[in-house]
Design a protein around this nucleic acid. Sequence first.
DNA 1: TCAAAAGTGTTATCCTTACACCCATGT
DNA 2: ACATGGGTGTAAGGATAACACTTTTGA
Lengths: 312, 312
Amino acid sequence: MTQQKTTKAKAPSAQPVAVDLTAVLVAVADGRPLVMTIEDGWALPSGPFAVEHRSLQAGLRGWVERQTGHPLGYVEQLYTFADSDRRQGVEGAQAISISYLGLLQAQPSIVPLTGWRPWYDYFPWEDHRGGAPQLIAKTIAPELRRWAKSGETGARWNRAAIAFGLEGRGWNEELVLQRYELLYEAQLIAEAQQASRKGAAELGRPMIGDHRRILATGIARVRAKIKYNPVVFELMAPVFTMLQLQRCVEAIAGLDVHKPNFRRLIEQQQLVEETGESVTDTGGRPARAFRFRAAVREERAAAGTKLPLARS
Amino acid sequence: MTQQKTTKAKAPSAQPVAVDLTAVLVAVADGRPLVMTIEDGWALPSGPFAVEHRSLQAGLRGWVERQTGHPLGYVEQLYTFADSDRRQGVEGAQAISISYLGLLQAQPSIVPLTGWRPWYDYFPWEDHRGGAPQLIAKTIAPELRRWAKSGETGARWNRAAIAFGLEGRGWNEELVLQRYELLYEAQLIAEAQQASRKGAAELGRPMIGDHRRILATGIARVRAKIKYNPVVFELMAPVFTMLQLQRCVEAIAGLDVHKPNFRRLIEQQQLVEETGESVTDTGGRPARAFRFRAAVREERAAAGTKLPLARS
DNA sequence: TCAAAAGTGTTATCCTTACACCCATGT
DNA sequence: ACATGGGTGTAAGGATAACACTTTTGA
């Protein structure tokens, strides 16, 4: 960067660089969060940023809808990674990658299609429904402890304990990226290992380049958003039961939710309205059907303040 | 974007594009939020993305510290704008701009220096300390009403009312970008007007290109962050009084805060500790001096869940 | 009849908000 | 004395979390 004080024209950008777009497309089918992949699960869909894209978002949206046949409900930019941020290729060529998060509504046809894969295949330690996975206590914690002992012990172990909720600290489902980074730093993850170093390859399915890191960023973002923003509904069919909604939230958060309180939370916020019908094939008592109250999408802007304001 | 199923090598990115970095640098000096500008206040500091930057963040950090002589406390990526997202130049050349937010500690030397300017010069409608600015009722609301009447009246007026807290809706200080976009869409802002169209140029100082839009993004981000993340401290001198801290938060949020409750909020969260000294030149009773509890920076990861979890 | 899921009620607890009030210093 | 800012107490209200319990279906 150079400071420019006298001329108003911008200094010309030095070397042109290669730019591509990478998408984290998420859908939930009967309680399983899925992510769209290509290359037989080895990569996220991506491609060069081309002139014909009138805007990044529009380009992505069109592309996804052509490829999958499903409407893309919600799109937001995730992050822009530069080569050395990505810790890979030092092959001289500059490259940056702009990543997007997209949410799709559940459709019966979505599952068998091309590349939809459960995201917990890539992050098995992230699914805490039914309790923390044994993987953490059996493999991750010991490996991280060993790594911590090999340098700056205190700081390293402290980070590990916070990220993975060790030593009685609670599990924080939003720290997806921090956990991945930590495992990467400790060389416990395939992507971090030169050629085929020893063990620990059981820590999730790897992806090419930094795609798993991008996926981690996406998961973290959805998990955060779902709590203060009614984005869940972008993942639901137009009509649903409370339990279906709950299962969807649980799938995303990787946590079990308390049923009675969940219902009240949703109803009290007036996020849904009854359709009047009921659904009988639930395995128990028939459930009332709900739909999302469209008005909410705008109103919700009026959300939380969290500061102790003066007067009124 | 093209789908690639058979080869594992990435398709080469088509046309290389020009990439540059733009920074929103923020500091607060005695109750005034400042932003670093160049070109006599017409632009945010920016420059080409160059090879020598080992990473985007590191590059930015080094550059800022050389230019300003102050340490850059906190850096985060804001957004990546593409040309047509930016609604400007259709001159054939692709260009994208990666923007960053940086927070600097208040220093006595910071104000007179090169390009620090009050950010409310650019967004006069955003400062609600001491009540909503008259500008909104006198100019903005009428103009927006006129604009709404010229097409899709209901939807337009609804958006306007939400964004600016009209018709008894509360003011939401986080909607900085939405408000700017709205004024832009309604052509009430200099940047949106071809050549010199008629009136309404009083709506804040303009900037070149989409820099004011980037600044709006930055302000929105700080305002959101300040409420669930102890970033305020990145803006404070190492030792401060409670009122100074409060004034800083008020400056950023553009809102008045309730003093007794603010103190309790801070203390109860154990964000600060007493230094033991007291400050006498406050104009009233001497105030106790505080410093930020460093440990918090890590612990804070343990933040909010907001979902009704099952068991424990 | 029992399992599975749908729902309702109620309480303890915590956090937020608002109001009222006293303390210490300089002019 | 009084203005200015520093600082404490407390009670009402709402949101959350935890527990116990009833209802309705299908196998």
